[in-house]
Design a protein around this nucleic acid. Structure first.
Length: 421
RNA sequence: GCGGGUGUAGCUCAGGUGGUUAGAGCGCCAGUUUGUGGCACUGGAGGCCGCGGGUUCAAGUCCCGUCACUCGCCCCA
């Protein structure tokens, strides 16, 4: 049955997994709303150009990780590998640039042709927020605070670390990049081959290396914080003050970077050690140059994306809402089937969760009722139908009582004050 | 994209150095109980041993390839 496998790196979301996804999305959605972020969705497919422009030709995502579709019309179409570019595109193409700020929340699947691993899927799911049109660092604080609240709602804050860093403004960053490249070129021959390759593509990324030899070389490298101009320093300070004020714990990691040119000022990452090497669970930053790079007006932006699949792996089953236990309808003989059907419908209209039992005699159906974790079995047999009653059996205590059909709802509600749960 | 590990029933896993009909626990189905479930007991179904090729008288077991998962790197959420 090899051909009946799912496509590599793409997983079914069976009910248990799906519930975890829902829980995460729902938590983020509700919290985003309390911050004034409105939910939106963009298409799963975009023109390749959208990502080429925003992520840049040099990024791995664009150069080798996109699913490209041979469109019948000959258009260059890709499955979206991330969410921000699509939102930015929508802002331009829908003409939303007139009134700022814009605050969006989204959730959905992304696609990257990577080598799968635990926590690294080819169809991955993300939640994300974007705040456009605000330069004030207060915006950055709120965006991070929303991320933190979401993690808090999921009960994960004690298992993750928030790291932040600043890339400074254009001036600071460019100056620093030059210094860093000059320094690293002197040590070029000692760098790992990975880092050598990054030297001209994406030098800031070298700060992030895992290679021990590289790390040693970096100890003598100039620090980005020393290149920050006063304005950039001020921005970073205000963000830290804000986070502290809101009791959001963070660590400044001077080696945390973003490679692409339109990133500036804040960069942040939420990581965990619980998930192995795919430990980044949420990450974001400020991208004031993004809209202009796309060919739109120059509108500042800040946001983040969180990995639903990775967050879901950190969730415990007992964090999920308890499943509602159903009422099980048991017609004793085929001729009472329709009475059962009607009864089920009546109770559902009153808000109860009702399941039909199919096939077998009373014993077998009680067994089935038990298996579906029903709290009550509602039995309809000759006696009951003749007297317009129903036998209501409590499957925990074994007690049973005959009740008129129209008293049933009141009785069950009374027994279960939570109202049918 | 690079390097390593794994792949036996629905699930978790046993199956030294190749050797008859491939096992266990859990789960599933049935019976003990045809108007009374859970528990217990008894029985049963369910395996192209991931897939393809090779070596051999003989392959779940050895070799090669392939697919999937997985660990690390790369990259990222």
């Amino acid at each position: 049955m090899a051909s009946l496998q799912p496509v590599r790196g793409m997983h079914d979301l069976l009910p248990l997994e799906f519930q975890k996804h829902s829980l995460i999305i729902e938590a983020a959605r509700q919290l985003a709303a309390t911050y004034g972020f409105a939910e939106m969705a963009t298409p799963l497919m975009e023109f390749k150009e959208v990502f080429k422009r925003t992520l840049g030709d040099v990024s791995d995502i664009v150069s080798k990780e996109m699913y490209e579709i041979a469109d019948r019309g000959g258009e260059d179409i890709v499955l979206r590998p991330e969410g921000t570019a699509g939102v930015a595109r929508a802002i331009i193409s829908e003409g939303l640039t007139q009134s700022m700020p814009l605050k969006f929340f989204y959730a959905g699947p992304m696609f990257r042709y990577e080598r799968p691993q635990k926590g690294r899927l080819r169809q991955l799911h993300q939640i994300g927020v974007e705040l456009f049109g605000v330069v004030d660092p207060l915006g950055d604080v709120e965006v991070i605070s929303l991320a933190f609240d979401t993690l808090k709602a999921l009960g994960l804050t004690h298992r993750v670390t928030l790291e932040i860093n600043t890339l400074g403004d254009d001036e600071s960053r460019k100056q620093y990049r030059n210094q860093l490249v000059t320094y690293l070129k002197d040590h070029h021959h000692k760098l790992s081959s990975d880092s050598q390759a990054r030297l001209d593509r994406n030098p800031l990324r070298i700060l992030d290396t895992k290679d021990e030899g590289d790390k040693k070389i970096l100890e003598g490298a100039p620090l980005l914080s020393e290149s920050l101009n006063p304005a950039s320093q001020e921005v970073f300070a205000k963000i830290q003050e804000g986070l502290t004020l809101l009791n959001i714990p963070f660590k400044v990691n001077p080696h945390l970077v973003r490679g692409l040119d339109y990133y500036c000022h804040i960069a942040f990452e939420v990581t965990t050690t619980d998930l192995g090497s795919q430990g980044t669970v949420l990450a974001g930053g400020r991208y004031d140059g993004l809209m202009a790079t796309m060919g739109g007006p120059s509108i500042p932006g800040v946001g983040w994306a969180g990995g639903i699949d990775r967050l879901a792996m950190m969730l415990h089953e007992d964090q999920l809402p308890a499943p509602k236990s159903p009422l099980a309808i048991i017609p004793m003989e085929e001729r009472f089937d329709f009475q059962g059907l009607e009864l089920a419908q009546r109770l559902r209209e009153q808000g109860f969760v009702v399941e039909m039992t199919y096939g077998g005699g009373l014993g077998k159906r009680l067994k089935k009722a038990n298996k579906m974790k029903a709290r009550y079995a509602l039995i309809l047999g000759e006696e009951e139908v003749a007297s317009h009653k129903v036998t209501c059996k409590d499957l925990e205590s074994g007690d049973q009582i005959q009740l008129a059909v129209d008293q049933l709802g009141a009785f069950l509600r009374d027994k279960k004050p939570e109202g049918g749960e």
